[in-house]
Simulated assay, not measured.
Amino acid sequence: MSLPMCPLCSEDEDIEVVRSLDGGRRLVKHRCGYEWEHGEPASPQRQPSRSFDDLKARFPKPEDVEPERLERAALLKAQYLASRPDFDPGVAAYWAKYQQIFSLDGLRTCDPRALKDFANSEVGAHPGNQATFNSVWNAMGDAAAGEMTRQTIEYLLYGPDEVPLADRLQALLTGSKSFAMTGFKEALLTRVLCVVQPDRFLSILKYTTEAGGKREIARLVYGLELPAPESVNWTLGRLILWSNDLLHTLVGDGFANQQHAAAFLWWAKDQPGGRL
């Protein structure tokens, strides 16, 4: 049995076995709190591989939301916009600054500290504790860590055209690229996308988390059950993008920007009437 690696953090340290499961699999838990099933089934029967188009077709769509859920979400949206019609204008200036830094020329000439500062900033989207990234950065030094972070962002945004964004994102999440900066994972990679494509990406930086990621918001606000990230053939990179686009479509217009829309979804998931 291969060593387990946390699908969210892409780390294989501090993983404990919670309990053994039928069929030779185990429920394991990472120090970040995420739990998942690990190991190959004892049975030789394996779930058949599915094509990209088949997987995308099976992913929940806006039309899958029940009418009463749509009505509830619309009422919550009207209530939210009536009390909070705008968003912090300071975010736009910060986003504009980093749009320039994340351009090809900006990445190649920026002060490395600007990249570290981005990883630890809460402006517009809170990436959470970045202890791993900061520890590795400090050990490597500004020059070496800045170069790896630059290459990571450059590959995400400007990687080979023949490699779809979801697959570039997945490669960086799993660390399969030698230049992938340790600790610059899902929250930070998604935050980069929020900055560079602010009309598309909601500032909800995790696919699934106890505090509420895209998967939890889809369930609580719209009654949709999105796939578990450890499901066979569902890569986390695809799930991150597909869930973002689904929520972007469902939340609709009327917000000042995507940060405003994301703030509504964060609020809406905690309103009475949702379900776990």
Score class of each variant (00 low, 15 high):
residue 153 I to L: 09
residue 136 V to N: 08
residue 103 S to N: 04
residue 57 A to M: 11
residue 34 Y to M: 14
residue 72 R to I: 00
residue 34 Y to Q: 10
residue 95 W to Y: 05
residue 56 K to R: 15
residue 103 S to D: 06
residue 146 G to A: 07
residue 79 Q to M: 13
residue 131 A to G: 09
residue 56 K to I: 14
residue 61 K to E: 07
residue 117 D to K: 09
residue 84 R to S: 14
residue 65 V to W: 01
residue 130 Q to G: 12
residue 120 N to Y: 01
residue 153 I to R: 03
residue 42 A to M: 09
residue 60 P to T: 05
residue 105 D to G: 15
residue 129 N to D: 15
residue 136 V to P: 09
residue 95 W to R: 09
residue 36 W to E: 02
residue 80 Y to T: 09
residue 46 R to N: 11
residue 149 T to G: 09
residue 47 Q to C: 14
residue 124 G to N: 11
residue 53 D to G: 10
residue 78 A to N: 10
residue 69 R to D: 01
residue 112 P to E: 06
residue 140 M to H: 08
residue 134 N to C: 12
residue 56 K to A: 15
residue 80 Y to I: 14
residue 87 F to L: 13
residue 139 A to L: 10
residue 104 L to F: 05
residue 84 R to T: 11
residue 43 S to A: 07
residue 40 E to I: 07
residue 90 G to C: 10
residue 112 P to K: 04
residue 139 A to G: 06
residue 92 A to G: 11
residue 71 E to L: 00
residue 74 A to K: 00
residue 143 A to S: 11
residue 52 F to K: 06
residue 131 A to P: 08
residue 62 P to D: 01
residue 101 I to R: 03
residue 142 D to Q: 05
residue 102 F to C: 11
residue 122 E to D: 15
residue 157 L to I: 12
residue 108 R to Q: 15
residue 70 L to V: 00
residue 78 A to D: 11
residue 38 H to C: 13
residue 119 A to M: 06
residue 55 L to E: 07
residue 65 V to Q: 02
residue 128 G to R: 03
residue 124 G to K: 07
residue 38 H to N: 12
residue 149 T to Y: 00
residue 68 E to F: 01
residue 129 N to H: 06
residue 72 R to K: 09
residue 153 I to G: 06
residue 60 P to D: 10
residue 38 H to K: 09
residue 101 I to P: 00
residue 93 A to V: 02
residue 144 A to K: 06
residue 148 M to G: 07
residue 152 T to Y: 00
residue 88 D to L: 14
residue 130 Q to L: 10
residue 118 F to I: 02
residue 85 P to V: 02
residue 85 P to Y: 01
residue 85 P to T: 02
residue 58 R to V: 12
residue 151 Q to A: 15
residue 119 A to Q: 08
residue 44 P to K: 02
residue 117 D to R: 09
residue 122 E to R: 13
residue 69 R to C: 00
residue 62 P to L: 02
residue 38 H to R: 12
residue 85 P to Q: 04
residue 45 Q to C: 14
residue 134 N to Y: 01
residue 140 M to S: 10
residue 97 K to Q: 13
residue 104 L to H: 06
residue 96 A to P: 05
residue 48 P to R: 12
residue 109 T to P: 08
residue 49 S to K: 11
residue 122 E to P: 10
residue 89 P to K: 07
residue 58 R to I: 13
residue 59 F to K: 06
residue 73 A to Q: 00
residue 150 R to A: 10
residue 63 E to C: 03
residue 92 A to Y: 07
residue 54 D to Y: 06
residue 75 L to Y: 05
residue 135 S to F: 05
residue 152 T to H: 04
residue 109 T to R: 11
residue 99 Q to R: 09
residue 42 A to D: 14
residue 157 L to C: 12
residue 44 P to S: 02
residue 148 M to N: 12
residue 81 L to F: 02
residue 37 E to F: 06
residue 33 G to Q: 05
residue 37 E to L: 04
residue 82 A to D: 05
